[in-house]
């Protein structure tokens, strides 16, 4: 377990933000941590949508239960948190 800072880029928001997470966090938990600083503050909630984490520029999101420690992300690397319809 170790504190792990990331640069979060939340879909629909205007700015990159510092998010402190943990190497043991899953990608869903990373998304939640990023959402705390964007959703309901400057980004409207989207009921029925999940939030997925992907490396900046990647087409594929990380698996939702993948741990940050296993993602290959570097400290402060930029991740995009994008909305995904639950139906998918």
């Amino acid at each position: 377990m170790a504190m792990f800072p990331l640069t979060a880029n939340f879909e629909g928001d205007f700015v990159l933000q510092l998010v402190a997470v943990d190497t043991e966090n899953t990608m869903d938990e990373v998304a939640q941590a990023a959402a705390h600083h964007s959703v309901g503050r400057r980004v409207a909630r989207r009921p029925g949508c999940a939030m997925r984490v992907r490396r900046q520029g990647a087409e594929q999101a990380f698996p939702r239960k993948q741990k940050l420690a296993d993602s290959g992300l570097k400290p402060m690397e930029c991740v995009e948190i994008v909305w995904e319809s639950e139906a998918r």
Binding site: T7, V15, L16, Q17, L18, V19, A20, H36, H37, R41, M76
Partner: peptide, 8 residues
């Protein structure tokens, strides 16, 4: 309407 983290 107040932040809880820093912008990068």
């Amino acid at each position: 309407a107040y932040p809880e983290t820093l912008p990068v």
